[in-house]
Amino acid sequence: MAARSEVVHCYGQLASGVARMAELARAREWGLLPALEEQCAALVERLKALAPLEVLDPSQFEQACRLIDQIRADQDEVCGLVKPQIEQLIARMSYLQQQRSLGKAYGPPH
């Protein structure tokens, strides 16, 4: 039996976190995403520190690769769901800025 790998464990936690982010994005629970993204970012930082120090055996390497593939797929889904929301927010902010500029130039609407 292979020894426990902290790197594989972190990848597992990251995969769970990103999968949860995908669930939240599908449910349009935008307000819950930032905290979860912060947790995932902390795991990525931990992996950056751990990965160079740990040598994975072939089964651990395969497991890590499967987890990375899952993480990438979930990340792509999250990006696909969040990007239109960000674009909509930017368009709305632009519209509000334009309205403010017009209000300053011509006064409030009657």
Rank of each mutant, 00 (worst) to 15 (best):
M1N: 05
M1A: 10
A3Y: 09
A3T: 12
S5R: 00
V7E: 07
V8T: 04
V8P: 04
V8A: 05
H9Q: 09
H9L: 12
C10R: 10
Y11C: 04
Y11Q: 07
G12H: 03
L14V: 03
L14T: 03
L14N: 01
A15P: 04
A15Y: 01
S16A: 09
S16C: 07
V18P: 01
V18W: 00
A19F: 03
A19I: 07
M21S: 03
M21Q: 04
A22W: 02
A22E: 06
E23D: 14
E23I: 03
L24Y: 01
L24H: 05
A25C: 09
A25F: 00
A25Y: 01
A25P: 05
R26D: 05
R28E: 12
R28P: 05
R28T: 10
R28V: 07
E29C: 12
L33D: 12
P34G: 02
A35R: 09
L36F: 04
E37N: 03
E38Y: 07
Q39N: 08
A41Y: 06
A41H: 08
A42E: 10
A42M: 08
L43E: 15
L43D: 07
V44H: 02
V44A: 00
R46L: 12
L47P: 05
L47W: 14
A49D: 05
L50M: 13
P52I: 07
L53N: 09
L53S: 14
L53M: 14
E54N: 09
V55F: 01
L56P: 08
L56M: 04
D57E: 11
D57A: 08
P58F: 03
S59V: 11
S59K: 12
S59H: 12
Q60L: 12
Q60E: 13
F61N: 11
F61C: 11
Q63I: 11
Q63F: 08
Q63Y: 05
A64L: 06
A64E: 14
A64R: 13
C65A: 12
R66N: 14
R66L: 14
I68R: 12
I68N: 06
D69S: 06
Q70V: 13
Q70A: 03
R72Y: 06
A73Y: 05
A73N: 06
Q75H: 04
Q75F: 02
V78A: 00
C79N: 11
G80P: 03
G80C: 05
G80Q: 02
V82W: 02
V82C: 04
K83E: 14
P84Q: 02
I86F: 02
E87C: 00
Q88V: 07
Q88P: 14
A91Q: 11
A91K: 07
M93L: 13
M93K: 09
S94P: 15
S94R: 14
L96F: 09
L96K: 07
Q97M: 14
Q98S: 14
Q99E: 15
Q99V: 15
S101W: 12
S101V: 15
G103T: 09
K104V: 07
K104Q: 15
Y106F: 09
Y106S: 06
Y106D: 13
G107T: 10
P108G: 06
P108K: 11
P109Q: 02
H110R: 15
H110Y: 10
